[in-house]
Computed example of a mutant assay.
Amino acid sequence: MALLTAKEVFDLVRDDLALVEDELARQSDTAFPAVSEIAAYLLGGGGKRLRPALLLLSANYAGRKDRSAIRLAAVVELLHSATLIHDDVIDSAGTRRGRPSANARWGNHRSVLTGDWLYMQSFQMALEERNFRILDILIDLTQKMVEGELIQLEKIGRLDVTEEDALRLATYKTACLFSGCARLGAVLGRLEEEEEEALAEYGRNAGLAFQLVDDLLDFTASAQQLGKPVLSDLKEGKVTLPLIYAMENGHHEARELVARVLAEKEFHSVRPETIVALVQDSGALRRARSLAQDYARRAKSCLNGHRDSEYARALTTVPDFILEREN
């Protein structure tokens, strides 16, 4: 099966994504004025729209191309935006995608309420489908994302985070939404249960690869590429998989330096470059990238032997450009 380039993949759903953008603009324009300003700012912030694209590709793969797919693609982007607002408030983040975060511009109270509004608006839109199966999927993935935030709060500032902890967190915070997008496409196309589960598992594995690459970029990309400061996760008290790997096998220097940053909640006595160099020298980045590649392979294997179409080729390509992304 010949793979496609990233451009060719997005070209397949470019017209539909334009309709999704129209729907998102309509939702922010008609929102309560106090919400509308923040919603328009967030939705115009240059996101990759990977989740809506994944839903649209999955729906087309399953043989469904209509207004329902457009609407649900907008729904998952609104849900994603709501989680980003709440994440930034919880993390006291000052930037998002290279611009001031909503909480930095409008304060925590208004930002949290806007996030709440986006959650409710997304479910109101989904309700228009009059399909309990769709609502079940959206409620389940939203609950898991909130549970992921609670899991993360339990682990903030702690050194005893394990690989299992990190992968569970990645599953709840990131992979469940990817899985939900793929599953929703399957449900729209009325695929048989076995194919629906395969598509959902494809999304889960692609989402895990995405989160692992995200963790890697915190150590390998520039602040300009990331749209936020390098090592911002560690400064916020989050010990991600590359750090976990670097601290394993009795690497006392790494453990001691990370402990100091967590205690200071800032890079005072330890420079970010010192941590980056240490993680690179430990082989942790190679190990984390190898795991991301493994999840990408697993995602592709979920599609084997099912359908041969340009949308199947596109879905097979998505894990590759997840691995290759630079922001």
Rank of each mutant, 00 (worst) to 15 (best):
G107I: 05
E23H: 14
E264K: 14
Q152V: 10
R260A: 07
Q293S: 15
Y245M: 06
L217G: 03
A69M: 01
L177H: 00
S222W: 12
R130T: 11
Y245H: 11
K65I: 08
E37N: 09
G94W: 02
K48E: 08
D294L: 14
Q143H: 11
K300G: 03
V276N: 12
D140P: 01
C176G: 06
Q293C: 15
M247T: 03
D214Q: 12
L118V: 05
D308T: 15
V270G: 00
R110W: 13
Q124T: 12
D16R: 10
G47V: 02
A18T: 13
T95G: 03
L285H: 12
D160G: 09
S222A: 07
L127M: 13
L257T: 00
H109R: 15
R325G: 06
E266A: 14
T30E: 15
A62C: 12
H306T: 14
E266T: 07
A166L: 12
Q27P: 04
F123H: 09
L184V: 00
A93P: 03
K7D: 05
F219N: 03
F178C: 09
E326T: 15
L153T: 10
A284I: 08
G207V: 02
A314T: 00
L42P: 00
D160E: 11
D87S: 11
L278C: 03
L153K: 13
G157M: 10
E129D: 06
L55Y: 03
G157F: 06
A186P: 07
E154F: 07
D215C: 08
L50E: 06
K155G: 10
L184Q: 03
A182E: 01
H251W: 08
V261N: 01
S28T: 13
E197Q: 15
R133L: 10
G283T: 14
G180K: 02
G44M: 09
S101E: 03
E326V: 04
I322C: 08
L167W: 09
G45I: 06
L84D: 04
G203T: 00
S301G: 12
D218Q: 11
L4M: 06
L323Y: 02
V75M: 14
L12C: 04
E163N: 11
L191A: 02
R105W: 08
R183E: 02
T5R: 07
P33F: 10
L159V: 05
A296D: 00
A296Q: 00
A6W: 04
R286H: 15
T274K: 13
V261R: 01
R260H: 06
A221M: 03
E273R: 13
L17Q: 04
E77R: 11
L241F: 13
L84F: 02
A246C: 01
